[in-house]
Design a protein around this nucleic acid. Structure first.
Lengths: 102, 102
DNA sequence: TAGTGTCAGTTACTTTTTGTAACTTGATTT
DNA sequence: AAATCAAGTTACAAAAAGTAACTGACACTA
């Protein structure tokens, strides 16, 4: 890939947030901890991709995964501090969309 | 595709901004109007995709394209008002990346 | 006047990502 | 024994992205 003088931190951030569904998943989690199926129902994303994205976000410590040994098993996803710190950015996009998208 | 109660405006916004390179192209344009080759050199994006993204952004009236009949031809891209209105969101992501990405 | 260079793309082709839908696992209810 | 549920996983097809070579209009150089 080409080498540029683009800030590596911003580059990394956009590599995550610029991936399809990622920001909408985080937006959904702004409403509080949610289970896999809740997120899947709230967004037009398939289980395959949701699973993949949640794994990435967990690895980056943006999202936390918690398993409850209920029957059937219950898995809750929530934002970490790092994830919650994205709320400002996400709300800005939300506001922008309300103003500028018809 | 699945039907959800997700806000169509936010959905549309994320369809644009969530596409690879889009936000970085806009970030680059925050520095002022720039030519095709300048943007291409500043980012690790290929001419093919840069061209495609700029077309989408122009269609959405987020970016404006201006042709100068110089020799060789000069084409400048700049943010419209709608595009500039994204600065807040982009700066939030930039700040987040400085704080949270190692 | 044939060859070289510039800019702003476009084309052809390969590799990666996504979309879709069916399947799995383990315990429970019918 | 068959059906149900949550939380995924798998297999396969379709779409998007990566890569590099090519184009066209003009001007400059040998």
């Amino acid at each position: 890939m080409k080498e540029t003088k683009l800030c590596p931190r911003l580059s990394k951030a956009m590599e995550l947030l610029g991936k399809r569904w990622t920001t909408l998943i985080l937006y959904q989690l702004l409403d509080g901890p949610q289970r896999f199926n809740e997120i899947e129902s709230a967004l037009p994303v398939s289980g395959r991709l949701l699973s993949e994205r949640l794994k990435e976000l967990e690895k980056e410590e943006i999202v936390q995964r918690k398993v409850y040994a209920d029957v059937p098993v219950r898995v809750e996803y929530s934002l970490t501090e790092k994830g919650s710190a994205l709320e400002g950015a996400i709300r800005e996009v939300e506001n922008w969309s309300q103003t500028w998208i018809k």
